[in-house]
Amino acid sequence: CSEFQKAIKSEDIAVKFKMGTDLYESGKYRKALRLFDQIVPKYRGKPQAQKLMYMNAKAHYEVGDYYTSNYHMERFVNSYPESEKAEEMAFLAAKSYYHLPPVYSKEQKETVEAIEKIQSFINAYPNSEFLAEANKMVKELDFKLERKAYEIAKQYHTLGPHNRDYEAAIKAFDNFILDFPGATHKEKAMFYRLDSAYKLAVNSVESKKEERVRNAIEYYDSFKSRFAESEFLEEANKMNAELIELQRQYENKG
């Protein structure tokens, strides 16, 4: 019967506490948690509770149980706001949220929540040593939301021929560019917006063609002025040339 088993079966909570601490310090978090689970309620209100709650929360974090770790960490921060570990706990609580969200293509309510949590950590501890990492996490999560919005807009572009609807893509890219001003995908978004507008214009019914050609040329101009070095420029130039040619026909008629 190992010492761990003895501690598990022991009646003495001090033995469990000692054993749990040793296990925690040697990095055996799963075993430590089994002991902590038994004694956390019993230490409530006792002087050792602070250390125990800290170890318990951190152990949950270390084994990847982020749903539980953020709960314990937030509780720790609420119970011991003056503790020297409070900042670390607050940061790891926020970081626990960072680990929760699923891939960008599924619902992102956890991402939004994580950004809020990390942001409120940044506001609460503006001089924290973890600031750089916190900012990095926010950036990464923001990028996830950006990618989601981009991929949805891009699908409208892909399905344009099937749905016979290029306006959806134009509108979706418009919203995307508005919502994510510094977006990584901005170049592609602007190009595919132009591409959608171009296809809408050249395939248009006659009554709306002139206006659509004009709109597409506007999208070309804003794309070119923003991304003069773009890899898509050659393709964009080709579209523009065709659009200009169409526009000239209308001017001659008019």
Binding site: P102, K106, Q155, Y156, D165, A168, N175
Partner: peptide, 17 residues
């Protein structure tokens, strides 16, 4: 929380604009 966006959006008949 399980199904990917593209599977759902391609079925949606109300589109932006």
């Amino acid at each position: 929380d399980k199904t990917n966006d593209h599977v759902i959006y391609r079925e949606i008949r109300t589109r932006p604009g």
